[in-house]
Simulated scan of single mutants.
Amino acid sequence: MINLRPLPSVIYFNQLFTAIVKLKRFNPHSTIISLFRQLELYGIKPNMHSVGILANCYCHLGRVDFGFSLLAKRLKLGYSLDSVIFNTLINGYVHCDKLPQAASLLNKIIKLNYGIKPDVVTYNSLVRGLYNSGSGDEAQRVLTEMLESNIAPNVKTYSMLVDMFCKDGCVDQAQSLIKHMTERGVPPNIITYSALLDGYCLRGQMEDAENLLHLMAENGCEPNLHDLPEIIGFMQQTTNVLYGIKPNMHSVGILANCYCHLGRVDFGFSLLAKRLKLGFPLDRVIFNTLINGLQPDVKTYNIMVKGFCKKGLMSEVAQVLRIMEEDGCPPNDRTYNTIIRGFILGNDLSNALYYRDIMVGKGFKADAATFSLFVGLLSSENLSDSKKDLLQKFIS
């Protein structure tokens, strides 16, 4: 760019350097300071935005004092001071873990009455510093000060405070804060919900955690894929026998939900057996969790029916049929044939014939596997005459 004639405006260089600053993993701050010096040698004068970028770079390098020296440069260039440059300096103190200096600078700005008013960005910097240092009471005080100064906290402010309370085990306070922010017209986002979800897990409030996952889905805030492995790891750890904590139906539900979000519906299905082993019945919630992970059609449901029939879980089969009808995915001939075979293998001929009548009423017929199973039973010597009469009705 410096080889172009005429030389580009400083505005273009500001845009370039702003983009480079965002590449934080490359630690570009020293490089940008050096590049600005080169621009001045080429006769390209900085403007107020250039000064702001420089101040930000110095603050990230821990040299807030050099950032302050740019206030004079800004005034010399004919630009007045504003909240942006002071926010940068306050943020610099916070970045360097110098909270007293940050608070002192804020007080000076207010008392000296430069005509500069702190805004939500100013207070968010302070809240973040208090958040990082674990000073929950002070952070709450800053929130109160914001409200008294008619500065509306944004979702970032509230999310930091919710996360702080949850990490301190104060989930009730976090819930109250979420209620407060919602009442003020600030809807929670994925960061807010994730913080509360962590808080529930830390407190072992699995039912609340499961309900929150469903609320997040309803509000379009699906759990972050980066957070899910941590939730799964925590859940598995807290339900480990070594900790003496037995999983309940809600903890199994949360695990199933997380696995489905990670695309591992197969692991989710494996938890059905765990849930039954723990003595908890299967319900619509667990089915919906797995179904949402699969985006099912009748083939998907048939796989579930076949799995339950294989395990002899015929009461669960009836629930699946009910869900299929409610979801507008009616059973087909394969569904009914699988169920009939399941009842026959379970020696429940009356229910087998009941579903046979339903199947025929819907215009379906027995397939070869079902028919041959009935014929084989008819030739069995272990079958009573009354049951053979029932089977005869099926064949006729």
Rank of each mutant, 00 (worst) to 15 (best):
T370Q: 01
L373E: 07
Y158N: 03
T18W: 04
G220N: 15
H60M: 14
I254C: 15
D227P: 01
G263K: 11
V360A: 01
K393D: 13
M160K: 11
L89E: 08
N347D: 13
G376D: 06
S125P: 05
R341K: 07
G220L: 09
N382V: 06
Y158A: 04
I53D: 08
K156P: 05
K22R: 11
F17R: 06
D168N: 10
S50E: 03
C221H: 15
T182V: 12
A195L: 02
H250M: 00
C201P: 09
L71V: 12
D163G: 04
S270W: 00
L377T: 04
F17Q: 08
K365D: 03
I110Q: 09
D227F: 10
A103H: 06
L272D: 14
L7P: 10
K22Y: 07
N14R: 04
N107Y: 10
T370S: 03
F13R: 03
K310F: 00
L271F: 05
P100H: 07
N124P: 11
V375S: 01
I110G: 06
S125H: 14
G293F: 12
D297M: 09
H29G: 03
R322E: 13
N288Y: 08
E210F: 15
K306I: 00
V317K: 02
E148S: 06
A273K: 08
L35I: 11
L71W: 12
T122N: 10
L215H: 14
N332Y: 01
V305G: 01
L89A: 06
S159G: 10
K393C: 09
K299P: 02
V142K: 07
T370F: 06
N211Y: 14
S50H: 04
H250G: 00
G233V: 01
G220E: 13
A352W: 01
P28S: 06
L282M: 12
Q101N: 08
P8H: 01
L54C: 09
L54P: 07
I339D: 03
K76D: 11
I20K: 14
G134L: 02
H95L: 07
E210Y: 15
V120G: 02
F364P: 10
F17A: 07
L106E: 02
S372A: 01
R264I: 05
T238N: 05
V360F: 08
L161E: 07
V320D: 04
I109Q: 14
N332H: 05
A195K: 02
G185E: 01
N124H: 13
P330K: 14
K311M: 07
M146H: 05
G307R: 11
N132F: 05
I90E: 08
L143Q: 03
V94A: 12
D82K: 10
P28R: 08
V84L: 05
V64Q: 10
G92H: 11
V127L: 08
L23V: 12
I303G: 00
I116M: 13
G293H: 08
D208N: 15
C96G: 15
V94Q: 13
G361M: 07
D97F: 02
K362D: 04
L54F: 02
L105N: 13
R334W: 00
K24W: 03
K388I: 04
F26R: 05
S83C: 11
L276V: 14
